[in-house]
Design a protein around this nucleic acid. Structure first.
Length: 478
RNA sequence: GGUCUCAUCGUCUAACGGUUAGGACACCAGGUUUUCAUCCUGGCAAUCCGAGUUCGAUUCUCGGCGAGAUCACCA
């Protein structure tokens, strides 16, 4: 059996959004699972929509996710080039085969004329088919006109789709579509067939918006005498707040945006895979390696799935807790608050370990940790609005803080002895933990929440705690 | 309008034709004797409608309704 070769073939027309990237993930999983080959090809035949730098963005995104390719751009391979605009001669060779067989002809009409046909068909409430207007006589194709495919076998096509099952479509789906545009570049419809054949792609995996076009491809495969590869169409990912296919127009976020919002690549991979796929068990969290082992096209869902950000964030929390501290630290680069730049790696890891259970995204790091690296700004309204603390008078507050300061002065400042000190303090002051600990917590952090008090104090250290308590006492006494 | 596809809790989903229709997110309540979170318990909540096949249908068939995709010199 020949080994599996799959591909991802994006167009460099802008950012990759989360809906697109799944058509990279699934073929990649399939290739890795079968020790096959994954190819990255750039489909840049639409010059009008070409966006400078888009290819780099695609590469960055794939790199971040850990979706690596064996052949293609930046990698080379035996079937290159892997950029369509560099493959013009390849398409011309195949086009010539069709011309020689009388299965391709020059389109004599202007765009306006074709548009008129289209409107006419619409007015008659008929589907527009170019072949209804097929010219009886054509001139030799000189490369300045569009080259059209001449469908010769108008019939119903049936084929098998690895995800959708058995599909079929009637003759209405067949037409004389354009193979090569008047600018000399092929259309997707032609180019991908040539490329996939030359690159020996065994499985084409793409979105289900291609289903209506597949009969056209099948008729072209026949004309070209190419054995069609295995095909699989993926259900759409739908916008979070609608039922429509997720698209840039509806504000679909790019993968990079989620990256900036502190989503881990592990989460993204896991989440995208589990939208429309599951292994039949109750497992929710899958690592990259587990996905590679367990993935199968046969278990891909047929209906569309909404992109649920709440679930994404939940899953991110799961992954944050699952990663080792070192792994998490690696992922945290670029998310630390400004003042943390002065801190050592060990110090940052220590703090990260403290807040790990509290993080939902990496973007929470500054809010959770900044008071460990810089003086917080006291905000006494936090005391006034606190349910437990609001009833305390200024005198009571400064007296409690003073007692705390005195008691803590003798502590060793490790988490255990601090806890002992704090417990003793509860007894001597006769206060409830909810009051005493909340007050100390606020006075040293001025944050809405923080790790366990003893851990927080230990991480801050003796002198910092003391000076923050002093400031709080001074401010209260005033 | 033509062609094509899809259909289980609000959301993501599971269920050889036989289950009290399961899990997860979200939400609600409680516990983990400091906040926030983590973690643990419990709760709420679904087979689009109608026929047919069958002893038995979420599952198979047909018809509706509904939703989506597509009908480019875009991919």
């Amino acid at each position: 059996m020949t080994s599996i070769r799959t591909r991802f073939a994006p167009s460099p027309t802008g950012y990759i959004h989360v809906g697109n990237i799944r058509s990279a993930l699934f073929p990649w999983l399939l290739a890795r699972q079968n020790k096959g080959t994954f190819v990255l090809r750039i489909e840049d035949t639409d010059q009008a929509r070409f966006v400078e730098g888009a290819t780099d963005l695609i590469i960055d995104t794939l790199n971040w996710l850990g979706i690596d390719w064996d052949e293609g751009i930046n990698k080379g391979g035996d079937y290159g080039p892997y950029i369509q605009t560099e493959r013009r001669e390849h398409y011309l060779v195949w086009a010539q085969k069709l011309i020689d067989k009388g299965l391709a002809y020059a389109d004599p009409y202007s765009e306006d004329e074709v548009e008129k046909f289209r409107l006419e068909a619409k007015a008659n409430k008929k589907a527009f088919l170019y072949r209804d207007y097929r010219p009886t006589e054509t001139t030799k194709w000189d490369g300045t006109q569009p080259l059209r495919f001449k469908v010769s076998d108008i019939k119903r096509y049936s084929w098998h789709d690895e995800v959708m099952g058995d599909l079929s479509a009637g003759p209405e789906a067949l037409d004389d579509f354009i193979l090569i545009k008047s600018d000399g570049l092929p259309t997707y419809n032609f180019a991908h067939i040539v490329d996939d054949a030359e690159m020996k792609i065994t499985h084409i995996i793409r979105g289900l918006e291609y289903i209506p076009s597949i009969p056209k491809y099948l008729s072209l495969y026949e004309a070209l005498e190419i054995e069609p590869p295995i095909m699989a169409c993926l259900p759409h990912i739908l916008a979070p707040d609608g039922k429509k296919k997720l698209g840039k127009r509806d504000g679909a976020k790019s993968v990079q945006e989620y990256r900036k919002e502190g989503i881990l690549p592990e989460t993204m991979l896991n989440f995208l895979a589990s939208m429309g796929w599951n292994d039949g068990t109750e497992q929710e969290i899958f690592s990259r390696d587990e996905l590679i082992v367990k993935f199968s096209l046969a278990r891909v869902q047929r209906s569309g799935a909404r992109f649920d950000e709440q679930r994404l964030i939940w899953m991110n929390g799961q992954w944050i807790r699952k990663l080792s501290l070192d792994e998490l630290y690696d992922r945290s680069e670029g998310f630390w608050p400004e003042p943390a730049n002065q801190a050592t790696e060990d110090r940052k890891k220590q703090i990260l370990g403290l807040v790990k259970d509290r993080l939902k995204t990496l973007a929470d790091i500054p809010m959770m940790t900044s008071y460990f690296f810089a003086e917080p700004t006291p905000d006494f309204s936090m005391i006034e609005t606190n349910k437990q603390l609001s009833s305390l008078s200024h005198d009571e507050i400064s007296s409690l803080l003073n007692s705390a300061k005195n008691a803590l002065a003798n502590s060793n400042y490790d988490a255990d002895s601090l806890q002992n000190t704090l417990n003793e303090l509860l007894e001597t002051t006769g206060q409830k933990p909810g009051i005493l600990f909340s007050l100390i917590r606020l006075a040293v952090s001025w944050a809405p929440f923080s790790p366990a008090l003893n851990d927080t104090l230990a991480a801050l250290g003796h002198s910092t705690v003391e000076s923050r308590l002093d400031s709080a006492i001074t401010a209260t006494t005033k």
